[in-house]
């Protein structure tokens, strides 16, 4: 798959964080970018759009990113969910990886980090 064909879902309660990442992803030529502002919306948008990659914040209202990750993995065990959070503590890392996260990015997330994740996803090695 080429990177431009990827479908990407960004889940973050910070509109600023979503817009910033969305801009980075669009600049790579990816046109199908979806956004969710909390964990519940993330699960619903995942089921609706079946994205190839999900960037998931952890600290969010309603249900957390970890809970949303669990529900997405339950729905689709092959889902590629990358935790993109400000709290990359050992505890959060372990919890996310146990729940099936594909990778973990610590905020602030650089454009290079985002690009590397998407390139790996396109190659099928995420």
């Amino acid at each position: 798959m080429v990177i431009q064909d990827l479908k990407v879902l960004i889940c973050d309660d910070s509109m600023f964080a979503r817009k910033k990442m969305s801009m980075t992803i669009s600049a790579l030529g990816i046109s199908e970018v979806f956004e969710a502002a909390d964990g519940e919306e993330a699960v619903a948008k995942y089921k609706e759009n079946k994205p190839d990659v999900v960037f998931m914040d952890i600290i969010m209202p309603r249900i957390t990113g970890i809970e949303a990750l669990k529900q997405i993995i339950e729905f689709d065990p092959d889902a590629k969910v990358v935790m993109a959070s400000s709290v990359g503590t050992q505890g959060h890392l372990k919890e996310a990886l146990r729940a099936g996260a594909a990778d973990f990015l610590q905020k602030p997330i650089s454009d290079e980090d985002t690009k590397a994740i998407l390139e790996n996803a396109a190659k099928g090695v995420l």
Partner: peptide
């Protein structure tokens, strides 16, 4: 604030 607190937590 979230980023600062996150880096502090880590």
């Amino acid at each position: 604030l979230n980023v600062v607190n996150g880096l502090f937590a880590v």
